[in-house]
Every structure is written in C-alpha cells, then in structure tokens.
Design a protein around this nucleic acid. Structure first.
Length: 559
DNA sequence: AGGGTTACCC
C-alpha cells in the first residue's frame, strides 16, 4: 500500500479501534518490507494510534522510527499528536517533558497547535502553573488556546478560574466560539452560577450561537444543576428532535437530584436504547432514594438486556445490598464481579468492604480489606467504621494507627468513624486525644458530628461537667444538638442541677426551643418533679409549638 | 503529497 493511499483512507476513518487495526497491518508491512514513509504519513499513523484505545503505541512507534532512525524528522504536525498520546497516562510525564525540550530547541513551540497541545498536556498532568506559564508566554494565541486552558481548569482544577479567563478573553477582544460557551456553561453548572449562566445564554442567543447540541446539553445541565427544572424542561422541549441520550440523562439526573425519582424513572422507562450511563444514573438514583429493591431489579433487567455493567454500576448494586442487609445477595454480587472480570478498583473494593460489614459478615469485610492493595482514605475509613459498628473500638483504633503509619492522611469522615468507635467502646482518653490530633496535626475542622461524638462520649462516661465545658467552646450553631446529647446523659445519670442548667441554655438558643421543653419535661418527669413538668408543658404551649407524637422517644434513643 | 489542538452525560 502506498503512502498516499494510506493517508487517504486513514484520515476520514472515524472508528479509532478500526483505524488502529488497519495501521497495525500497514506497520507490519513496513517492518517486513523495509518500507519507509515520509513524515506526513508517519504523522497519520501516529494520529491513528493516539486516538486508539492504546495511545502508548504512538509513543513506541515514535521512539522506534524517529528517535532510533534519525532519517525521519518530526515536524509541527507530529508533536501535537505525541503530546496528546502523552496526556493519557501520568507515567508519560518525563516523555512529554523530553518532547517539550525538543520542541523548544527546534523553535516549533511558536506553532499554535503545538502550543495548545502542550497546554493540554501539562493540564492533564495536573501541572496547572506550567500550563498557565506556557499560555501566558505564547507569542500567538487563538480561541483554541483559551478553550484548552479553560477546559483544563474546569475539568481538573477550579471552575471559578474559567469565569475569570472568560472575562479576560472578552477584554482582549477575542471572539468566543461554540466550544468556549460549552465550557463556560459547564463551569456555571458546576459552580451553580445560574445568574451568570443566564446572562451568557442571552448573549449566545443574540449572536445566534445557540443551536448546537453540545451547547444545548451544557445549558440543560446548568439549569438542572441549579435546580431550575422548569427552565430545563422548557429548553428540553425547544430542543425537539435535536436532543439525544445525553440530554435525557441530564434530565434524569436533575430529577434524581431533586429527589423526584419517580419522574426520573418515567423518563428512563420511555427510552428504548439505553446506554450504560443511563443505567448507571438510574441505579444510583434508586440507591440514593433508599429504594434498594428497585436498584437490584434494574440490575437484573440490565443484564437481561445484554448491557455489560461497569465498576460504577457494581458500586450501586453493592450499596443496595448493604442497605437491604442481604448477605446472600451481596455474596452473589461479589461472585458476579469475579466471574465477569470487573476491575476491583478502590471504589468497588470499598463498596465490598462496606457491604460485608453492613450485612453482618465482619470476617469477609476484613478479608477483603486485607486483600486490597489500592487502599485510599475511603477504604480505610470504611473498615474503621465497620469495626466501630461491631463495637470493636480498640480494633478500629488499631486500624486507624496502621493507616497513619502508612502515611495516609485521615479526613473528616475518618475522624467521625474513629470518634464513633471511641464512643461505642467508651475509650475516653483516646477519644479526647484523637479530637486534639484532628485539629492540631491534621488541620481538619471539627464539624457537628465530631462534637456530638465527643460530648456523647464524655456524657456517657459520666463526665458531664467536662462535656458542658466543652460545649461552651463550640460554635453557636452546633451547640443545640450537643446540649441535647448532654441533657439525655443528665437524665441517665440523674444530674438534676446540671440538666436544668443545660435545658435553660438550650432555650436561650432560640428557634428550636420546643425540643428543649420536650426533653426538659421528660427530664422532670423522670425525676418526679411534676410541677416542673407542668410548667415546661405550659411554656411549650406558649411558644405555640407542638411536638410530633413519639419524637422525644426517638430523640432519647438516638442520643 | 499535505495532515492538527480545544467540547456534552458519571
């Protein structure tokens, strides 16, 4: 096959896997017959590989046919393709940097395409300052340069930066294109900046840019994420036959976000050709809406329809098993994962550990945990939480210290689990120590959950006055719920004076004071102080607040 | 001989 012919068929080929297969054949021919290509033809081959499922091949071929055989000289068309291939894996950072040096030496970095692909490459490597410096130093920039930088910030760093860049773009007199607007709407969706997005929408309508599917989808997403479903639906109708499966998915996720699963399901059921993303969304929606049975039913349906589940679907299925506490199902799902060669990434592993501990098999949870190589903070936290729920406080702490030794930084949730472990097992010294470590060493800002844990730990141990002192230093908005925990403890330990003081403090806090009266009257009742019970009830009536029946029982059980 | 960078849903 001659070079010209090869190029003519490679260029329009849209299926990356197909073109890569074709290129494989051409390459074998080239190697066996010693056929040499001109740089444009090589560029074509490299491009086919960089778009294929195995972009690394582009790099390998470049190393073999350009670096080793220096008869081929890369040009300004070669480098963008290579940088794109290098963007696919973090391990290719040194390779990309080497190519960058080469580009600078040969002065090809003034080429806009080369520059843009370099920005993209550094952005994908999470080296945002490098990307930014390159952008600022470019002798010539086009809309593409701006789009590249903006999309990098949007996808991997800070969406707020996109809005700042857009302002700058307008200021410099650059004309935004459709892609700029897609990125901008997507940033507005993430930031939930409805007003800003609407203004840009008007601008887009004025310049007549609005009819482009991706842009309409980005807009749709923006309205859905901002919970403006009326506006989203209006746009959806307006799109008419232009809408696609992505538009439907946005709508479904919008309903799910607003806790309208039934509406989401209605849209879902109408769709004939469902792709994996739709199944993923719908199953996640069921799990989120506490409908685990429906999630499992959907899973069966999905398999029946011949759709291959992915890792994210399996996470939803496992979490459905967890909330049903159905160990049999859970084990079946585990077996399914093994039999269908589904990658057990950190997410799947964590879901398995969570499932086993919530379904009552701590042994299997532990086995899965210790068999996991890729443990992240969430994996460790899930295991700690599991142990804590089994009342194995000391074991939970041991796992926590093990995690620290491995150099994994605990987060907010980790401390909730580990403090809960202390609380369940009455580990007072450890709990207080960990609480100090949280702020002092790890700079994790304590939240209401941490406070409640600690107050509860102290109160249950009968250290009620320490708990009260502790609440005094808490932020005002967290005090009420902590006082509630303390008051319950006062009831348990018959600490009449402190209880009265706590109840008074609660009432001073304002709006939720009816709850304070309910607890207070229960408190007096237990103490047999019936006059005070009557007084508390009277005060409650004066507040014109009525408690819902049974509420106080739940409150007491809970704390 | 004559080719490219940047975009939507999880």
């Amino acid at each position: 096959m001659c070079s010209q012919h090869l190029r003519r068929i490679l260029v329009p080929l849209s299926n990356p896997a197909h073109s890569a297969r074709l290129v494989d054949q051409v390459l074998t021919q080239a190697i066996t017959n010693g056929l040499s290509h001109a740089t444009p033809t090589w560029n074509c081959i490299l491009r086919a590989y960089s778009n294929s499922p195995t972009p690394i091949k582009a790099i390998l071929i470049f190393n073999h046919f350009f670096i080793k055989k220096s008869s081929n000289i890369p040009d300004n068309y070669t480098y963008p393709v290579l940088f794109k291939a290098c963007s696919c894996s973090l391990s290719l950072l040194p390779m990309g940097k080497g190519l960058h040096a080469h580009v600078t030496k040969t002065a090809l970095d003034s080429d806009i395409y080369v520059g843009n692909s370099l920005i993209h490459f550094y952005g994908r490597m999470a080296l945002f300052t490098d990307a930014r410096v390159l952008f600022d130093k470019m002798p010539f920039r086009d809309v593409g340069s701006w789009n590249t930088l903006m999309s990098i910030y949007n996808d991997f760093s800070d969406s707020g930066e996109v809005l700042i860049l857009f302002k700058q773009l307008i200021f410099e007199g650059i004309v935004a294109d459709k892609i700029t607007l897609v990125i901008l709407f997507s940033a507005c969706a993430r930031l939930e900046k409805l007003h800003y997005g609407k203004t840009v929408h008007c601008y887009a309508t004025k310049v007549g840019l609005e009819y482009m599917l991706n842009m309409e989808n980005a807009l749709l997403l923006m309205y859905a994420k901002c919970k403006e479903m009326d506006e989203a639906l209006r746009l959806f109708d307006e799109m008419g036959s232009r809408r696609n499966i992505v538009s439907l998915n946005i709508l479904i996720n919008g309903y799910i976000d607003m806790e309208l699963v039934d509406l989401a399901r209605e849209v879902f059921d109408e769709i004939v050709d469902k792709d994996i993303v739709l199944w993923r969304s719908m199953m996640h929606g069921c799990v989120k809406a506490k409908q685990p049975e429906e999630a499992l039913e959907l899973f069966k349906k999905m398999i029946d329809e011949g759709v291959t589940p992915d890792e994210e679907v399996m996470v939803s299925v496992l979490s459905a098993c967890s909330s049903l506490s159905n160990l049999q199902y859970g084990r079946l799902v585990h077996r399914f994962i093994l039999q269908n060669n589904i990658t057990q990434d950190a997410f799947v592993k964590t879901a398995l550990i969570d499932m086993y501990s919530k379904c009552g098999s701590l042994e299997e949870a532990l086995v899965t945990f210790y068999k996991t190589d890729c443990k992240d903070v969430v994996t460790w936290t899930t295991m700690i939480e599991g142990l804590a729920n089994y009342g194995l406080g000391n074991e939970a702490l041991r796992v926590f210290y093990q995690m620290e030794r491995k150099g994994i930084k605990p987060n907010e949730a980790t401390f909730v689990s580990v403090l809960a472990a202390c609380r369940h097992s009455g580990l007072i010294t450890e709990g207080c120590q960990l609480f100090r470590r949280m702020g002092g060493v790890y700079r994790v800002q304590p939240t209401i959950e941490h406070f409640v844990c600690l107050v509860d730990l102290l109160s249950r141990a009968g250290l009620l006055y320490q708990a009260e002192e502790f609440i005094k230093i808490m932020p005002a908005e967290d005090k009420f719920i902590s006082y509630k925990a303390l008051l319950s403890a006062c009831i348990t330990y018959s600490e009449f004076d402190l209880g009265k003081k706590v109840a008074n403090n609660m009432m001073k806090l304002g709006n939720q004071s009816h709850e304070a009266y309910v607890l207070l009257s229960n408190f007096y009742a237990l103490e047999g102080h019936w006059t005070e019970v009557a007084e508390a009830r009277r005060n409650m009536k004066e507040l014109q607040t009525r408690k819902k029946p049974g509420n106080s029982i739940i409150d007491l059980k809970h704390y």
